[in-house]
């Protein structure tokens, strides 16, 4: 242990003097414990990489500025820096919580906007226009019943009273209206779906 600390102190001292290889040795020596320490807190590989990198950037800056006090505690010092960065990370994430959308559950299935988007609005308008044109092609008696039923939301009883025909006749006209519309749709391959 004593030897390891002395060796760290020597490497740090060499690095401050300009030996870049000393830093490489220090990183190689401690990377696993520092990386493992950060990962044990954040549990995310990418975040761990970021914090590991930031920790060593701080280490490099401090050493190059000559602000490091050699007390034979290089590793605990780097650990402390890493620990502080982990705290910063959690603080930042608490302020701005992220939702992990990688699982089976899709948040957008819950918070999706019920309103139609611009494209769907146009399609809907087009479909309604096509249906209106189909209705215009129907014989007058069928058209009358269908308009009352579908657009004025009248019951067949009300329709029969208004048009002066029996309920059965109104029902029949409605049925024929739908059959005729389907025929035209099939004949011309009209697509009426949104």
């Amino acid at each position: 242990m004593q030897n390891s600390q002395t060796s760290d102190a020597l490497l740090v001292s060499n690095y401050i003097k300009g030996d870049e290889y000393a830093l490489e040795l220090l990183i190689k020596k401690h990377k696993q414990s520092i990386y493992g320490f950060i990962f044990s807190k954040v549990r995310d590989r990418d975040v761990t990489e970021d914090i590991f990198q930031d920790a060593f950037i701080k280490v490099i800056k401090t050493l190059k500025k000559g602000k490091y006090n050699e007390e034979g505690k290089f590793l605990p010092w780097v650990m402390r820096i890493s620990h502080n960065l982990v705290i910063d990370y959690f603080r930042k994430n608490n302020r701005m919580p992220k939702f992990d959308n990688s699982g089976d559950f899709n948040i957008f299935s819950v918070i999706s906007d019920g309103a139609l988007n611009a494209e769907k609005v146009i399609i809907k308008e087009q479909v309604q226009k096509d249906v209106r044109r189909l209705i215009e092609e129907l014989p007058e008696d069928q058209k009358e019943v269908l308009m009352m039923r579908m657009y004025q939301d009248m019951s067949f009883k009300e329709i029969s009273e208004r048009t002066g025909v029996s309920i059965n006749t109104a029902l029949g006209r409605m049925r024929y209206a739908l059959i005729n519309m389907r025929k035209v749709i099939e004949k011309h391959n009209i697509i009426l779906t949104n």
Binding site: E20, L23, E24, I27, K28, K31, Q32, Y35, G36, F39, T48, E49, F52, Q53, F56, I57, I60, K64
Partner: peptide, 15 residues
Amino acid sequence: LNPKDETISFILNYS
């Protein structure tokens, strides 16, 4: 648990 080689390389280049 080891950092990626790219991360190490970045740190050394930064230094």
